[in-house]
Nucleic acid binder design. Structure first.
Length: 414
RNA sequence: CGGGCUGUAGCGCAGUUGGUAGCGCGCAUCGUUCGGGACGAUGAGGCCGGAGGUUCGAGUCCUCUCAGCCCGACCA
């Protein structure tokens, strides 16, 4: 991609009413643009990042044996009346009239729809277990949208639902998804910790949150550094400094951003909606369910919160909008023709390259490059051409190295 | 939903006791620059968030309203 053609250029000063760091950097870099409170457009750069995150999520969910589906955003009141949640969720769900007197809601979660889908298609224990997920825009009329991409009214969510014949089969899958989540967060450059939390309206049991420790998080976690004990303070009985109930170590506190949350649903929805299967003995039983949520757009914001410096974003390799930022410095024909050639070579070698071919000053280009946070930067200038070399810099590493142009491709491919 | 702050050019801001709107950045054109947000010149760009009121006259005063941000409450 030639930067001169890229829609969404950088801006120097962020809008003053964007206080949150992720929103400021993403807005300045031309990744997102706010339309209204909690509602953002994704520009080409931002969409690339979002898509990379979604694809990581896809790969990891598929690896658990789950299958991707896509359910509607428009949903009829009648379905939600089966669980009583049309009334129960009217504060958070956008609800309005369709044709005639029909009531329609915008999807804020999909338990009702998925349960309806599965009860229409699955009848026997032979067809279970099954796990289905979707990656979709969700709508919630948040009382207070805030913190840029972290809490929006329209946002991206991956929601997965699994259906099982037995509690033990469910538990086995639930644990598998836990590991899968840890793996996908790691690939996104996030160090997420599993935290026990309230089951909310879903379950009497604990749910499990995936928390990224970060000062700007809105959750507070009590945890032990010696073992894996960690609880959201909304359910935690231990205070800071108390003994860890699991290993006797000390309890610490941290703020956290909840990037994922998984729940044992048991038969709450299958029971209410009559989603049953026939077992070996010919008995009809409600399916045992789990649900597994995470937010790709919130992950994107979280990455920025935890991975940046004073000059801009530092994208982890797997989610970066481009692998390489090729920057031509100095508006000199020789520089541009060399950079053009290198760009063509890199692209034909399959590299994802953003090529800054703009006629801008060195300061602007390098500053923008810092802001955009692409992991590897290759600089071509008169200075480097004299040495028949390019300067390669990894983001967040101070020292740049000079590499001969001819050997550059091999260097990058490693 | 309570509390606080803010709405003036695309963005950041100034605008005095009420007298008819300005600066910086950005944008356009020209010239000089070219490894850390260079410089000069010229130019375009405004329903002062909206409605009502006070006044000879409102960006400025009053009332209402809408929007955004922050702190709470909420968070399926």
């Amino acid at each position: 991609m030639r930067q001169s053609k890229l829609f969404g250029k950088t801006i120097k000063e962020a809008a003053k009413d964007e206080i949150s760091l992720n929103a400021r950097l993403l807005n300045r870099g031309g990744f997102v643009e706010k339309l209204m409170s909690g509602v953002y457009s994704y520009l080409p750069l931002g969409l690339r990042v979002l898509d990379k995150i979604k694809n990581i999520v896809r790969e990891e969910m598929n690896a658990t044996g789950a299958m991707e589906v896509l359910m509607p955003t428009l949903q009829p009141k009648e379905l939600w009346d089966e669980t009583g949640r049309w009334e129960g969720m009217k504060d958070v769900m956008f609800q309005f009239k369709g044709r005639g007197d029909s009531d329609i809601g915008l999807g804020c979660t999909h338990e009702e729809v998925i349960t309806d889908l599965v009860r229409k298609r699955i009848f026997s224990y032979k067809e279970l277990p099954v796990s289905l997920y979707q990656i979709q825009d969700k709508f919630r009329n948040e009382p207070r949208a805030k913190s840029g991409l972290l809490r929006g009214r329209e946002f991206w969510m991956k929601d997965m639902y699994s259906f099982h014949t037995t509690e033990s089969d469910f538990e086995k899958y639930y644990d598998e998804v836990k590991l899968s989540y840890l793996q996908l967060f790691k690939r996104c450059g996030l160090d997420a910790k599993i935290v026990e939390a309230s089951g909310g309206i879903f379950t009497e049991k604990f749910s499990h949150e995936f928390q990224v420790f970060c000062e700007t998080g809105e959750d507070t976690i009590h945890y032990c550094r010696e073992c894996d004990f960690a609880q959201n303070i909304e359910i935690c009985e231990e205070n800071v400094g108390d003994k860890c109930p699991k290993c006797g170590g000390e309890v610490f506190e941290s703020k956290g951003i909840e990037v994922g949350n998984i729940f044992p649903l048991e038969t709450k929805y299958s029971g209410a909606m009559n989603a049953c299967f026939t077992d070996k003995n010919g008995e009809r039983k409600p399916m045992i369910m789990g649900c597994y949520g995470l937010g790709p757009s919130r992950i994107m914001g979280t990455i920025v919160e935890v991975s940046h410096d004073d000059k801009g974003i530092i994208w982890p390799k797997e989610v970066a909008p481009f692998a390489v930022h090729l920057v031509a410095l100095g508006n000199d024909e020789k520089v541009f023709s060399s950079a053009d050639q290198l760009y063509d070579k890199l692209v034909s070698a399959g590299m994802e390259v953003l090529y800054d071919d703009r006629e801008e000053s060195a300061g602007i280009k390098l500053g923008d490059s810092d802001l955009l946070g692409i992991p590897m930067r290759i600089v071509i200038s008169n200075r480097t051409l004299e040495k028949n070399s390019a300067e390669i810099k990894m983001r967040a590493e101070e020292n740049a190295e000079l590499v001969e142009l001819d050997k550059l491709l091999e260097t990058i491919k490693e």
